Simulated scan of single mutants.
Amino acid sequence: MIHELETTLAGLQGAWTFEDGTTPWSSDIAQRYPTTPCDDVTTLSRGGQERVDISLFGPPFADLDSAVENVGGNWHARGFTVKVVIPIESGHPEITTNTPDGISLAFTANASGSSLSAKTGCADPATA
């Protein structure tokens, strides 16, 4: 998952922070990121399975087309299918993809800020 974040961020300019808004992006910190329980709304449990969910916040993008094309093109070039969740015309575009390893990625951008998130699939802690 860290590789996916690093590869996506390599094509974007500006400072990126973790979700606290102050801790700068670092793969070292991401490697120590805590897992969270996988909760199923129906059963309220996934048998003790856990996942890693990292959200990063970045700079605003005046040129939304360019930002979305940059990230979407990066993902597409790596063989990922890109889904437009919210179109650029909205002023708050969002695109997503899923990697073959089961990692979900999402990118949003607007004139006041941007975000990139990555989430692993659920796994037993002993095998994660």
Results as ranks from 00 to 15, higher is better:
Y33W: 15
Y33S: 06
Y33D: 08
T36Q: 11
T36P: 02
T36K: 08
P37K: 05
P37W: 07
P37V: 08
C38H: 08
C38Q: 06
D39F: 12
D39H: 08
V41K: 06
T42G: 14
T42D: 15
T42N: 14
T42F: 15
T43P: 03
T43W: 09
T43R: 04
L44C: 01
L44N: 05
S45N: 11
S45F: 10
R46K: 10
R46L: 14
G47L: 11
G47W: 13
G48E: 12
G48W: 15
G48T: 11
Q49R: 13
R51F: 15
R51C: 14
R51P: 13
R51K: 14
R51T: 15
V52K: 09
V52R: 11
V52F: 05
V52T: 09
V52C: 07
I54Q: 05
I54V: 09
S55L: 15
S55P: 02
S55R: 04
S55Q: 11
L56F: 13
L56R: 09
L56C: 07
F57V: 03
F57G: 01
G58D: 06
G58I: 04
P59H: 03
P59G: 06
P59R: 00
P60L: 01
F61Q: 02
F61D: 03
D63R: 00
D63N: 12
L64K: 03
L64Y: 13
L64M: 08
D65A: 13
D65F: 15
S66K: 07
S66E: 15
S66H: 10
A67C: 01
A67T: 00
V68Y: 02
E69K: 05
E69Y: 14
E69R: 10
N70M: 10
N70L: 09
V71L: 02
V71C: 01
V71I: 05
V71E: 10
G72T: 05
G72N: 08
G73I: 03
N74Y: 10
N74H: 10
N74K: 05
W75V: 02
W75D: 02
H76P: 00
H76T: 10
R78S: 13
R78N: 13
R78P: 10
R78E: 09
G79N: 05
G79Q: 07
F80N: 06
F80A: 01
F80S: 01
F80W: 13
T81D: 11
K83L: 12
V84Q: 10
V84A: 06
V84L: 04
V85F: 02
V85A: 04
V85D: 11
I86H: 07
I86S: 08
P87D: 09
I88H: 00
I88W: 02
I88D: 04
E89F: 04
E89V: 11
E89P: 00
S90I: 02
G91Q: 11
H92I: 12
H92P: 02
H92K: 03
H92A: 12
H92F: 15
P93W: 08
P93K: 02
P93A: 05
P93L: 06
P93I: 05
E94R: 04
E94F: 08
E94Y: 03
I95F: 04
T96V: 12
T96F: 08
T97K: 03
T97N: 11
T97W: 13
T97I: 09
